[in-house]
Nucleic acid binder design. Sequence first.
DNA 1: TGTCCACGTCT
DNA 2: AAGACGTGGAC
Length: 369
Amino acid sequence: MTGERISDRVPDFARRLLAWFDEHGRHDLPWQHPRTAYRVWVAEVMLQQTRVATVIPYFEAFMAAFPDVTSLADADQAAVLERWAGLGYYARARNLHAAARVIRDQYGGRFPREPEQLAALPGIGPSTANAIAAQAFDRPAAILDGNVKRVLARLYAVEGWPNATATARQLWQLAEAHTPDYRAADYTQAIMDLGATLCTRARPACDDCPFAGDCHARAEGRTAELPHGRPRTGREQRRRRETTMLLIRDGAGRVLLTRRPPTGIWGGLWSLPEAEPGAEEEAARALGLTVRPEPPWEPLEHAFSHFDLTINPVPARLQESAGLNSPAGGVMDGEEGIWYNVATMERPGVPAPVATLLARIETDNEVET
DNA sequence: TGTCCACGTCT
DNA sequence: AAGACGTGGAC
């Protein structure tokens, strides 16, 4: 190694960061007590796209339902998705479940410790693999999540979009150069905490930052500009489109749901049936329902987390005539497992309840033009 | 109320 | 490589 080391530009970075962390960092996160590999893994995957405050209640419920990797592996995917509903990016839950089965079947239920082994599991990339290795096994592995990218990009005024190949390579080098060979778990948490609580995207609290005097972005008055945003290419080639979700209730007020296909948006989740805009009347006619004549349609605060009905598939011919994009279904009586055909809303020996198409929920979709 | 866009992994 | 995935923070 010749000349100045990158990490020497901010003398004693790790020790100063850890000193800040000991006083101001987050030490009461649920996955820190106890800090097992399983809990760290689930938390890291939940945190991949979601903020701490949102994750905590989901994490607690998930741990109650699946206390260890074996119970997760033994569960049905549907039960896992149920605990994930509302968190978004549902491929994370499918990957989590698949990885649990790999750990059960190929590793005897024990977590691999090598970052390369972790990164080979579904849903675990380089950053999450190193985060688990550091947090769970105290390995001096560098992480580079969004928080760390922001801290390093500002500290060294790194130009370029952080996800661009060249910029990412530069940031990885910085991340590795700063990672100490001691207190790896604490250091990993510390640099994420710095980014999450002080070095925020908007209005960073530089006055409280131990590295304000070292920060190039700060010195140049460019904290609002760095890190650079994604290049805006081709935006004008996209437009917004509305799709329509049908809210259908039977005579007892129950909502009809459909299971979405296993991949794609909201994959594997129960959802309202979807129709092309304006297809409400046609769908209702095909389903033998009564359309409520006048708007306003009823809004849904959250369409996918609070329904407890299940449904069964109906023939593709009916889907088509009803103008439904995804498989429609019949109402399942949860306790007895008896289902109604949505087309007729009747079952043998029981009078048919009246069903009404009550509302239309419009969602935004960006599509290629 | 609406619009923009972050975040890590997969494809 | 560059876009999909989805929710929610920021404005």
